[in-house]
């Protein structure tokens, strides 16, 4: 049996090639895919988050760890789905209509995927209808909205209003983020949460879906 602690280390070090190889070998040797995820990979990402919060890890390290996690999950997820297992949640993410700035959104995407979420990336300049479609047809239960500009920020409110009109607001949690966005604004427009960086967005999403 291969040393699964190496899987933990591969994710922590952001070594995607290693995480893929270890997972493939472990599965060939009959390892339980659920165990790989919950006992090695998620704890590794938790440690990555801790290091990020304490300024030991910086954004590039966060991203390569998320990539190592994602690479391994791409092998494992189909097996779990076949067994009927569900991801923690399905997150539809995008920058709101009118906003084309996607680096922040991509960071959050990568971190959510690394954190075990299924991410439905709707891209940039996303109209409310596109999110609603993702909720209805792909069972998204979290919607993450991003805006960098004060001029596009009001579109977050418009989008949430559209969710209400479409009757889907009750099925989802809405989280928002972006440079001008604040916790206060999140409360004002009736979002469920706000995070000021990619790592805490994962913590936020987890706490919302576990409620």
């Amino acid at each position: 049996m291969s040393d699964l602690q190496q899987l933990y280390t591969a994710v922590l070090d952001g070594n995607a090639r290693a995480s893929k190889a270890i997972v493939e070998q472990a599965l060939a040797e009959g390892a339980d895919p659920q165990v790989l995820v919950t006992q090695y990979m998620i704890p590794a990402m938790d440690e990555v988050g801790r290091r990020f919060e304490s300024n030991e890890y910086f954004v590039p390290e966060l991203l390569i760890s998320a990539r190592a996690m994602k690479t391994a999950l791409q092998i494992i997820t189909p097996l779990l789905t076949a067994k009927g297992a569900q991801p923690i949640a399905r997150v539809a993410i995008g920058t709101v209509k009118g906003d084309l700035h996607d680096i922040g959104k991509n960071l959050v995407s990568a971190m959510l995927e690394g954190g075990g979420f299924q991410v439905l990336d709707c891209g940039v300049d996303v109209a409310a209808e596109k999110f609603i479609e993702a909720i209805k047809t792909k069972q998204a239960n979290v919607v993450a909205l991003s805006a960098l500009l004060t001029t596009t920020m009001p579109m977050m409110k418009t989008t949430i209003e559209a969710f209400k009109t479409a009757g889907v607001r009750g099925q989802i949690k809405v989280i928002i983020g972006g440079a001008p966005v604040t916790q206060k604004y999140a409360e004002e427009i009736g979002a469920d949460g706000y995070a000021d960086n990619a790592s805490s967005a994962v913590t936020l999403a987890r706490s919302l879906v576990s409620k």
Partner: peptide, 23 residues
């Protein structure tokens, strides 16, 4: 075009050399 340099091998090799101050 429109991509990001945050996780390129080059960024990973260099980013810690940049100025971060003493905190």
């Amino acid at each position: 075009p429109g991509g990001q340099h945050l996780e390129t091998e080059h960024t990973l090799r260099h980013f810690r050399k940049g100025f971060r101050g003493t905190g």
